[in-house]
Design a protein around this nucleic acid. Structure first.
Lengths: 349, 349
DNA sequence: CTGAAAGCGCTAACAT
DNA sequence: ATGTTAGCGCTTTCAG
């Protein structure tokens, strides 16, 4: 029952408790924690001992309220099921940890409406910055972000206009370049196994890549590719069957471009099951290298993205801004890379 | 310059601003937001209009301070680079979103010391609950968690003692069962391609699986497996080479057990590169099905875990506790499943 | 159904 | 070098 020794049922200690225990004022304790240089050695030791004895953990809610700085950065990604985004989050997390910032994470499921809800809720925690995926947001999201008056980074795509800062690459160019690569390999009857138009509405990065593909094909004058959409672009088996059916139904094709690497890998697996020789009878390439493109045999030719780097840079853009370093370029293009593997070959003409 | 219209350079509105705008007291605004039923229809409409007009976003720091409830749940995972953990986080995120809770995420890099730092920092935000990976924490972490007096879930392993709640499976059994499976397939000269003992110190779930493997082998009386450690258990190519070298150096082996699926997939690829027939000349199995085991040919026999389900249940345990539903079992075993694929076969005896 | 007062834990600004 | 005062934005409690 007695509470005198202070240890029987220890309430969560606050600054005042530590101050009393150490025989100083609350302000001194605060200084020891935040500006130790401004406190005399002896006092500092006394206070530190009190902090340790009481297991004091500063209440950051009070801190945030008072200082108008939370040390929290919000990041919103579509999903963590796609490794490009979990890599991105890892990159963000690593960069933030170095600066002692915390990561408040949300998954929008590719829905701008859900993103809006998340933005509204997460902004309530008064983050010091926010990182979004893509450039497609509701009008209300734009409003919310504007009135939040904090650094905003949009990642994974570089556009003409951005809310604030951006880090990513030219998705149109990525689509264009992989198609050009296929064409320069000598393939001239291309098929495109894409995600659905509905998906592309919400995932306009994919839409841009599609446009890039069509543009490259048009430039080369080899005729528009036949197109087949998959239902669930993250389902390997399902996508593979659809891709293979598509190839069978279009006997003239010499290569297919798959809108992502899951589809590509699934297509390779299913086509081989059905006895197709890759790349001799049909070449396959994907877009986005999620560490699985190299696993299949033959390896899948793809466009490699740099997810972790994008995350790292996005966080750094925020942190630099917070540290007053306006220097950094507010729009960073990290590029992409065509990785040619055995699922495609130089076709003898 | 004029601020009269209130829209020129709008400061971030607070409750009081909304109240003035609507011609009511702050308290009424608060009620409209939190207990709309207790406010008259007309008043509610007025207030709602003010909220919308001002773009008011409640300051959750103040809320947290006053209510001692933040709506934030902390989750700590070793890394997001391993898909079992990104799946877990996705499961947590989904479950939390349904209850309107937010996710504060940290990556411990398999280091209990880093975990401790993260726990200390994140606890400052006064989360309503915390989810940790594994059962291995520093003494200081235990102290911190105890004095935080919030629900704690340890995931990915079930042990005799837990800080509070737990959801996972018996890692010893997982190792034991995959080894038994291999033995019952008729393999009798096993090799074990493991992670390093140093890694197992910090990843005692892997250590438990190792023990399970050795126990199964001992029970069967077929002699201890030869063991080879890999350097970087997440590097496919490197691990594959090490595994293949190991097989070459131990000509008597008829099967290898790989400590994870990355190693297993790498081993299959490299062994095939060197002309080995799988499973005829050497069988391969892994542990942990990260969606890549089925991609290679032959498919990799593994123990499948349920990452997303673990995350979902971990979050639910926290949420149920917060909702006062003590009912739920505080220790949940989600089990695992042996998935037999073509990288192993029933060996004719 | 609505409002006024008080205070959550902390720190900026101002003493001393 | 240390202490005092006030207030960040919200909700709990108590009045009306």
């Amino acid at each position: 029952m007695s509470d005198k020794k202070g240890s029987y049922r220890q309430e969560r200690a606050n600054l005042m408790a530590v101050a009393k225990y150490a025989g100083v004022s609350a302000m001194t304790v605060s200084r020891v924690l935040n500006q130790p240089g401004k406190v005399a050695e002896a006092t500092r030791k006394k206070v530190q001992a009190a902090v340790d004895a009481l297991g004091y953990v500063p209440n950051l809610a009070a801190n945030t309220l008072r200082r108008e700085r939370s040390g929290v950065i919000v990041a919103l990604v579509p999903t963590l099921e796609n490794s490009v985004f979990s890599d991105t989050v890892q990159g963000i997390s690593n960069a933030l940890e170095q600066e002692g910032c915390q990561l408040l994470l949300g998954c929008s499921s590719y829905s701008p409406e859900r993103e809006e809800k998340l933005v509204r809720a997460l902004l309530g925690h008064r983050p010091d910055g926010i990182i979004l995926t893509g450039t497609l947001h509701t009008a209300e999201t734009h409003k919310l972000l504007e009135s939040a008056r904090i650094p905003v980074v949009e990642m994974w795509d570089i556009a003409a206009d951005h809310i604030d800062m951006a880090v990513g690459f030219d998705n149109f160019a990525a689509g264009h370049d992989i198609a050009s690569h296929m064409i320069s390999c000598g393939y001239e009857s291309l098929g495109y196994v894409a995600t659905s138009p509905e998906h592309e509405i919400h995932e306009n990065r994919a839409a841009k890549r599609s446009k890039g593909i069509y543009a490259a094909v048009a430039e080369a004058g080899i005729g528009m590719p036949a197109r087949q959409n998959v239902r669930n672009p993250l389902d390997i088996a399902d996508s593979g069957v659809i891709a293979a059916d598509f190839v069978v139904a279009n006997p003239g094709l010499d290569a297919i471009i798959c809108a992502n690497e899951i589809i590509g890998v699934g297509a390779i697996a299913e086509l081989q099951n059905r006895g197709w020789q890759i790349p001799d009878q049909i070449a396959v390439c994907g877009i986005g290298d999620a560490n699985i493109a190299a696993l299949v045999t033959p390896g899948l030719t793809t466009v490699q993205f740099y997810g972790q780097d994008i995350g790292k840079r996005a966080a750094e853009l925020i942190l630099d801004r917070l540290n007053g370093q306006q220097a950094a370029e507010g729009k960073q293009d990290v590029g992409f890379r065509i990785v040619s593997r055995a699922s495609t070959a130089e076709k003898p003409s």
